[in-house]
Design a protein around this nucleic acid. Sequence first.
DNA 1: AAAACTACCTGAGTGC
DNA 2: TGCACTCAGGTAGTTT
Length: 270
Amino acid sequence: MPELPEVETTLRGITPHLVGNRVAEIEIRESRMRWPIEDEVLEMEQQEIMSITRRAKYILIHTQTGILILHLGMSGSLRICPHEVELKKHDHFIMRLDTGMEMRLHDPRRFGCVLWHKGDITAHRLIKNLGPEPLTDAFSAEHLVTTSLAKTTTIKQHIMNNKTVVGAGNIYACEALFSSGIRPTRAAGKVSKRKLTILTEEIKKVLAAAITQGGTTLRDFLREDGQPGYFKQQLNVYDREGERCRNCPDTIKRIVISARSTFYCPSCQK
DNA sequence: AAAACTACCTGAGTGC
DNA sequence: TGCACTCAGGTAGTTT
């Protein structure tokens, strides 16, 4: 499952293949995704793709009359390949272009979605309540301090909440908390303003670094051209239970916070 | 209103 | 080799 850097990497990878080209054919091979893929997406056929943007982990493919909203869920990926390449199991949605290439949505767990939307995207039910983008000025230390005020929920849950900030998935939430020296279990309202300021910057830094590296590869994520990302080798705590901290002699611990594996260093994170 | 919980689904890995 | 079990990157929708 792709986190924000993987989604951004995917978006950058598919854009040159799609933008400016015409959709020749849409094929729905399996409509049972998080929500059914409706036949209304066929409206894309014969239309030119104008641009591709992203809001949180939603990829937005714009045509003249509407927007295709894609989400990769936990196991989704997009591939660009020539029409002749054999389809794989779990290739559920195909967008064929007039160039002879096509984009395929592959998603074994089917937690992703494919929706067609007409009109103002900011008013869409999935988009309208989202918090700020992490890599913009809208996500500031002041914003994190304000939203954390008096919160008794853990700081990890708080930064993973899409209303606080989007794009801090499980891996990068763990990593940013490590870099900031904050224990994931600490109540959000009990983290100092100084630490929240550091955390704001570390969330930006870890996401930006991962995007630069082309996203982290875990299990089934492949970039759109099939090449793996290279970020995993520089994770400090995620999936490193029992291994030595890269910053001190202590050992990385694994705990569970709201059913999600959480990794931290007991010495470096207070 | 906020926090906690549930649901969606397949496949990889582990232990017996 | 097979079976039972646990776990996995997300998040909308429901319940407390």
